[in-house]
Design a protein around this nucleic acid. Structure first.
Lengths: 156, 156
DNA sequence: AAGACATGAAACTTTCATTGTTACGTGATT
DNA sequence: AATCACGTAACAATGAAAGTTTCATGTCTT
């Protein structure tokens, strides 16, 4: 696949859970983001470890937010989904005996590392609550269009 | 494969061509970076279009630098290899009808776009000549280790 | 003119990471 | 006991970059 979608998808889920559904099963969440329940469990496991969500087994179980969106930064979500590699470019991982390649790799690595630091700082400065408010602004401006058009959005 | 290696590999090649080999065939270049001559031609084609290198067919032909390394920025090389996507994370490409997803995607896209702008500015500020000097510094500091250990490095 | 050399380019295969899917185990509620 | 839902392992599908094969075109040497 092209890009790692986990961070984007998890943000999507967290906002829906806070604003619209409260508790939700993996199956329901999977429908929100058009994927499979197992994929959802894989992603949510990292969030649970970090105390962002909690899960309960059995009848009536499912997933629940464990803290307010205002206390979750985009960086927290990025880390929780396994801090996948940020960049699609760069030198190969294993070091080379060639001094030219070493010099090239060192420069690129240093430049990318700096960019990574800044990007993660940006992520740390944005809370999921802010993004949720972005959504609400769009909702108002749209004249209250259907905000969450997934199957089963009508509730039970 | 994991990451797009083209930018790193092309920098490697450009410095070797300037400092060590002058003209080189695709086959010789392929040995420098441990790959295939066709892969080399694919990458070099973009550099030729931008006037960074020139190619000549036939006996005695091959590739040659068309301008000094000091006039080539890392950004030039990045663009020349086809400006592959910089990031490995982000939302999916096609827009969603869900307003929450739209808000999430817009935030992520904006944040990544800003990071991309800054990273490309960094690339634009670094010349290949600077990286070549990094190499020479390493070469001195290493006590003149074999600087380019590919097969055929002894010349003809 | 013939042969060797080298790029140009199309078509296909391989590789790798993410995502998707199936299957089964465990725990909790009714 | 039956149902529901998470937990996890194992495997398949997908897509992009890289690797490979093949043939055409152009150029130099003999």
């Amino acid at each position: 696949m092209a890009r790692d979608l986990r961070m984007s998808r998890m943000l999507h889920v967290l906002i829906h859970m806070d604003r619209h559904v409260g508790r939700a099963t993996s199956e329901q969440i999977a429908q929100m983001i058009s994927t499979n329940a197992v994929v959802v469990r894989r992603m949510m496991a990292g969030l649970r470890e970090r105390g962002i969500v909690s899960s309960e087994k059995g009848h009536g179980g499912g997933w629940q937010l464990a803290c307010p969106l205002a206390e979750i930064s985009l960086r927290d979500v990025y880390e929780a989904v396994g801090h996948p590699p940020l960049f699609n470019i760069g030198p190969q991982a294993d070091p080379s005996p060639c001094l030219v390649e070493q010099a090239v790799d060192a420069r690129l690595d240093a430049t990318l590392a700096e960019a990574e630091t800044r990007l993660l700082a940006q992520f740390a400065a944005i809370t999921v609550e802010e993004v949720a408010q972005d959504f609400e602004r769009r909702f108002e401006e749209s004249g209250h269009a259907v905000p969450f058009p997934w199957h089963g959005a009508t509730g039970e």
